[in-house]
């Protein structure tokens, strides 16, 4: 595929765009997995919430 005289700029913009969005997605999934693991560890150790009222939010 011929991208004309400005091929480098087109490729670069798509590359930066993909890189940023992929790293953002990857970070979100990594963070989600980490929080889930922390929560499971705490629950396995027998930690309980004080009341059902404060669940989730504080």
């Amino acid at each position: 595929m011929d991208l004309g005289p400005h091929a480098a700029f087109i490729v670069a913009s798509y590359a930066v765009f993909t890189l940023v969005l992929v790293s953002l997605t990857a970070w979100l999934f990594y963070d989600g997995a980490r929080q889930k693991r922390l929560l499971e560890d705490l629950e396995a150790k027998g930690a309980r919430r004080r009341s059902r009222e404060t669940e989730g939010t504080k």
Binding site: L28, D31, G32, E43, R49, E55
Partner: peptide, 26 residues
């Protein structure tokens, strides 16, 4: 895609707050 990422971010934040609440209770 924005709303997918936003929803994922919200889920992470809720989990983070639960972890924090559990730690404080501990």
């Amino acid at each position: 895609l924005f709303f997918t990422l936003h929803m994922k971010g919200m889920r992470n934040e809720i989990l983070r707050r639960r972890v924090k609440a559990l730690r404080i209770a501990e």
